[in-house]
């Protein structure tokens, strides 16, 4: 049996491959059609604070769209994104191989049944293969859970990596430099990635780690507080600066350009500081599935 509480699904009973597959398909169905409550509230707060008439119209239509799909039968956006999964598995209950196989099978089924748009294209065979999830595994001692993000192409296309120092951007190797990269990425993105954005940033010694860690920050609620006070302060400053830019929802002008900024700091190498910026669109589709 699957219980739903907001954007968290919980499967109970003795799991079989069949009930797991069904639960994974349900996870997709919920993700494409219902935004997490914190994101919806972020948009509602944006609308209340917004001063531009045009921007208010845009935010209202976004909320209308959310309202229209509330019966979970239609996708919020025709770009159902690339499925990115973070699987925290308890090895006493599940194996990585088993979960990987089932998640790939469920993705095939969901593509037909939910449905999802064909978003995995094989450029060599010049054909679509449906959808293919990007899965990250990490062992846990707690309950097994799958965090699913559906990340659309528009916001992915405006995501970026900076190598510090970046003199053109005016970013030195310090916290102020990271903040500068975050704001710069939004200035360069303008309205192309569907703002209001959720901007995530990670500094790391390594490009791949910087971008992957930044993306993983999107599984957090936009209201979650950074436990590191220096980063919490940076997020607050960057968010204010972004919303002072006047880009507004969909770039039409206004003061609702971002709903949140998320930042984390991994270790850097004495010679290498990379800042990965993962820009999320307003349609931040995220679901957590907890397994028995």
């Amino acid at each position: 049996m699957i219980k739903k509480r907001g954007s968290v699904l919980t499967l109970s009973g003795t799991p079989t491959n069949q009930t797991l597959l069904d639960a994974f398909v349900e996870m997709y169905r919920l993700a494409i059609s219902e935004l997490p409550r914190d994101v919806v509230e972020g948009l509602e707060t944006g609308l209340k604070k917004e001063t531009s008439t045009r921007a208010k119209g845009v935010l209202r239509m976004m909320l209308e769209n959310i309202e229209l799909v509330c019966d979970n039968t239609k996708p919020l956006c025709q770009d159902t994104g690339v499925p990115i999964m973070y699987v925290h598995y308890n090895a006493a209950d599940y194996s990585q191989l088993q979960l990987k196989k089932l998640l790939e099978q469920a993705t095939k089924r969901a593509t037909k049944e939910v449905p999802l748009r064909d978003n995995a294209l094989d450029i060599l065979k010049e054909k679509s293969v449906g959808n293919h999830p990007i899965i990250h595994f990490e062992e846990t001692t707690g309950k097994t859970r799958v965090e699913l993000l559906l990340k659309g192409g528009g916001s992915e296309n405006v995501s970026k990596v900076y190598k510090l120092p970046d003199l053109e951007v005016g970013a030195e190797r310090d916290l102020a430099g990271i903040e500068q990269c975050i704001v710069d990425a939004v200035v360069k993105a303008q309205g192309r990635g569907c703002p209001p954005y959720i901007v995530a940033a990670t500094v790391s010694s390594n490009i791949a780690d910087a971008t992957a860690s930044a993306k993983e920050l999107h599984i957090q609620k936009i209201t979650s507080k950074n436990s590191e006070p220096k980063l919490a302060a940076l997020e607050k400053r960057a968010l204010k600066r972004i919303n002072d830019l006047g880009i507004g929802p969909m770039g039409v002008g206004g003061n609702t350009t971002a709903l949140a900024v998320k930042c984390s700091a991994n270790y850097v190498h004495p010679a290498s500081w990379f800042v990965g910026i993962s820009v999320g669109c307003w349609s931040m589709r995220r679901v957590t599935l907890v397994l028995p």
Binding site: E64, N65, L68, V69, P75, L76, Q78, G251, C281
Partner: peptide, 13 residues
């Protein structure tokens, strides 16, 4: 002309 990204169901209607 600009349409609103992500408002797919509104446009489909």
């Amino acid at each position: 002309c600009a349409a609103i990204g992500g408002a797919s169901v509104v446009y489909a209607s």
